[in-house]
């Protein structure tokens, strides 16, 4: 039996999720033994139109060319996983989706906007094609990626873990930054998966993994207001990595 094949595609993004893959270290070497990696530009493998069993897609759709390309990626892939904030919710660049007049956004920034070929909106991958599984996070953690791929290779569907960061944080034995320091931690409304990285360093979660299931955002807003945070800074904090609330929803 030939090895399963894998491709890593990049759309509008910072490449951080691809780096999370490269940072897998030994696990990446292990992965390379069990799958044939056809396309992974950050690792020097280029074959964009290869047909593969698993496609990992990083980045958001922001150009007309992207719109065409993501459809090609979809038709070339058996199982498509969007990974990272950009691919799952449009990413930081989806800030422009909130502009009063998105068509004019580029004109406000660039002196010669005619050279910029860009859509009015930054969109998650699922806005254009069917996505089989999503990995949230900015960037995703190496462990998430290897777990999802390993589960698929073993013939099972990956588990969509939408639990709150607080649960993961307490399992890791971390001390609550909100309770001990009044920090504006977004852990109670944020999806787990990072291993409580920020709280482990005494820093409040800023929500880069997106919304958890059954999130009480208005409850947390009121609580943070009670801690003395102005409503606009709470709003900014909640929209820092996933600015477009319409793309925060579940698939």
């Amino acid at each position: 039996m030939s090895k399963p094949t894998l491709a890593v595609h990049k759309f509008s993004s910072c490449d951080g999720c691809q780096l999370a893959l490269l940072n897998m270290g030994e696990a990446l070497a292990d992965l390379a033994q069990h799958v044939e990696i056809k396309h992974f530009v950050e690792a020097g493998l280029v074959n964009e139109d290869a047909k593969v069993d698993i496609a990992l897609v990083e980045g958001s759709v922001v150009t007309a060319k992207d719109q065409q390309r993501i459809r090609r990626v979809r038709s070339n892939s058996r199982y498509l996983i969007s990974m990272g904030a950009c691919a799952t919710s449009g990413g930081i660049q989806a800030l422009k989706n909130l502009a009063d007049n998105p068509a004019d956004w580029i004109g406000q920034i660039y002196p010669q906007p005619e050279f910029i070929d860009s859509l009015d909106r930054s969109s998650a991958i699922k806005q254009y094609v069917e996505v089989d599984f999503e990995l949230w996070g900015c960037p995703v953690s190496s462990l998430q990626v290897s777990e999802a791929v390993a589960t698929l290779l073993n013939g099972a569907e990956p588990l969509d873990n939408q639990e709150k960061l607080c649960i993961e944080c307490k399992r890791a034995g971390k001390i609550c930054t909100l309770v001990t320091g009044g920090e504006p931690c977004l852990g109670p409304v944020t999806r787990a998966g990072c291993g409580a990285l920020c709280p482990a360093f005494g820093r409040a979660c800023y929500g880069c993994y997106g919304g958890a299931e059954l999130s009480n955002q208005s409850g947390l807003r009121k609580r943070l207001e009670g801690l003395g945070l102005p409503p606009e800074s709470i709003q900014k904090r909640m929209h820092l990595i996933h600015p477009d609330p319409q793309q925060q929803n579940e698939r």
């Binding site: 390993a150 607080c166 009480n216």
Partner: peptide, 30 residues
């Protein structure tokens, strides 16, 4: 329910709560 964040912190720190779940963690090597 308006205030509760359903974050689970109360149950995590409760010295008598014992609920758990079980998951299978497969390695890439199959």
């Amino acid at each position: 329910a308006e205030r509760c964040l359903a974050c689970g912190n109360c149950t995590m720190v409760c010295p008598t709560c014992f609920c758990h779940h079980q998951t299978e963690e497969a390695q890439v090597n199959g």
